[in-house]
């Protein structure tokens, strides 16, 4: 699990890459929180384009970052989750905390 951070104006983007589970999530959480503290963004984008797996540890990651962004009055965005991840996001009600956006490259499940 890798995480690359980019700042553009008031927007902080975390490009997540790989599998998000309880084992892999901790360093990612820390690096995002450090970047939030440094940059005080008014939007935080969690880019899920390259996330290949996520369990509820990822939901914990989003909920924790939502707490940070709401403290700053910032908006949280989730970009491009793959279908299985989007399914989990919706089950967990993450569409109530964050704006979920997909860019149309989303593939349907194939048999």
């Amino acid at each position: 699990m890798k995480c690359r951070l980019a700042v553009s104006g008031n927007m902080l983007t975390a490009y997540l890459d790989g599998e998000i589970d309880h084992h892999s999530v901790q360093p990612v959480r820390e690096s995002i929180d450090n970047a939030i503290d440094r940059n005080q963004p008014n939007s935080l984008v969690l880019d899920f384009s390259d996330v290949t797996f996520m369990d509820s540890s990822g939901i914990g990651l989003i909920m924790g970052r939502f707490r940070e962004t709401s403290r700053l009055g910032a908006q949280l965005y989730i970009f491009n989750p793959q279908p299985p991840i989007e399914k989990l996001l919706l089950i967990a009600g993450m569409d109530k905390l964050a704006k979920i956006q997909t860019n149309g490259k989303k593939e349907k499940y194939k048999r």
Binding site: D21, H22, R111
Partner: peptide, 21 residues
């Protein structure tokens, strides 16, 4: 299907993480 496999991977990950955490 990919969805069935993904469901199993996720459910197993939850159960195993519970044992660990």
């Amino acid at each position: 299907t990919l969805e069935e496999i993904s469901d199993i991977r996720t459910a197993v990950s939850e159960a195993v993480t519970n044992c660990i955490v």
